[in-house]
């Protein structure tokens, strides 16, 4: 499957937006202006962008603590996201969710999730809804190596096969569940090995390679849309920042510098599309400038935006009560 130049440029824009957004949140968090816990997705862009490039408006995703990248890739407005991270009334969740709960149900984004393994059961439900309604939609559960050991995830993979659901399970193995290595916490060699136990195909993909992720996800999405059931895709990479902002990362070796230098998904994407003549360097440079402007605007608007009022404390607990 060869992608159009428009699709490639859009995927680059998404990856660049995620990278710049996260680098900027990292910088702004250090000033003390951003409240709460923030978990950054930088380094992992090829996963969200590569998977979501296969999705459309019929499809839904569920995300993780580390959800900013999934949000951007599924079309959530970065300006509203930044305002949410700052806890502002103009935020994607009106300042009541924060970094760990950014959602946009209209975009099929079921939410970042503060509970490890919270998303896969919900994805089964979305996939069931698509199947019963005959929309052709699929649902994708992004989860980390930590959640790959949660019962909810394993139960959901079993249920997805039993119910023959159009679901895709994307295990984003960045090497660490918080500070604990996945080489220690995951009992098998690869998370993808578990797929056989649930009667579905399982593949391991280089998570720094947009094209590899895009191709694997494309096959899984096509199979799911055709009624062929679920797939487990394990995406391997490393995150560029700590588990959360402020993490001193004393548990890590030197893999981040190595990855940034030699494996980085944005560098590899640029090299590949320009050398193949699919896109020109100037086109990518133009995207870089537009994204830089967007992120700058998102931060300035967030800082200037109003905070929620006391009235907002009590609203939207129920539809009616």
């Amino acid at each position: 499957m060869s992608a159009t130049p428009e699709r490639l440029l859009e995927s680059y824009r998404i990856m660049r937006t995620i990278r710049d957004f996260e680098e900027r949140v990292h910088k702004e968090f250090a000033t003390g202006e951003i409240p709460g816990f923030v978990h950054l997705y930088a380094g992992e862009e090829a996963s969200a962008a590569g998977v979501c490039a296969n999705l459309d408006d019929r499809d839904a995703i569920a995300s993780t603590h580390r959800g900013h990248g999934h949000c951007i890739a599924k079309g959530v407005d970065p300006v509203a996201m930044m305002a949410e991270i700052y806890g502002r009334a103009t935020g994607a969740c009106r300042g009541k969710g924060g970094s760990m709960h950014i959602a946009d149900l209209d975009k099929g984004m079921l939410g970042a999730n503060g509970i490890v393994g919270g998303g896969p059961p919900l994805v089964c439900g979305r996939a069931l809804g698509s199947k019963l309604q005959g929309t052709g939609g699929v649902a994708v559960a992004f989860f980390g190596d930590g959640a790959s050991n949660q019962g909810t995830t394993l139960e959901s993979m079993n249920l997805a096969t039993v119910w023959e659901l159009p679901a895709i399970f994307v295990a984003e193995n960045n090497g660490y569940a918080e500070a604990t290595s996945s080489t220690w916490s995951v009992a098998c060699d690869d998370i993808a090995d578990r797929a056989g136990g649930f009667g579905m195909p399982g593949v391991v993909v280089d998570g720094f390679d947009y094209f590899a992720v895009h191709e694997a996800a494309g096959e899984a999405v096509a199979r799911a849309r055709d009624g062929g059931g679920p797939t487990l895709i394990e995406v391997k990479f490393t995150r560029y920042f700590g588990h959360f902002e402020g993490d001193q990362q004393t548990y890590r070796g030197g893999e981040v510098n190595e990855a940034r230098e030699n494996l980085d998904c944005l560098k590899r994407f640029r090299e590949r599309v320009t050398s193949a003549g699919e896109l020109r360097g100037e086109q990518l440079d133009a995207v870089d400038r537009e994204v830089a402007d967007l992120v700058e605007r998102a931060v300035q608007e967030a800082k200037a935006a109003p905070t929620p009022t006391a009235d907002d404390l009590l609203t939207d607990v129920y539809v009616s009560y």
Binding site: A60, A62, L105, L110, P120, P121, L122, V123, C124, G125, R126, A127, L128, G129, S130, L132, Q133, A139, G151, T152, E155, S156, N158, L159, V162, W163
Partner: peptide, 28 residues
Amino acid sequence: PGRVLDTPISESAFIGAAIGAATSGMRP
């Protein structure tokens, strides 16, 4: 037919699936 579903004994998965389906316009 097709609207009454048996489940594995996996309460987290199927209660969660009911909740997920509810967000997509079903009334499980």
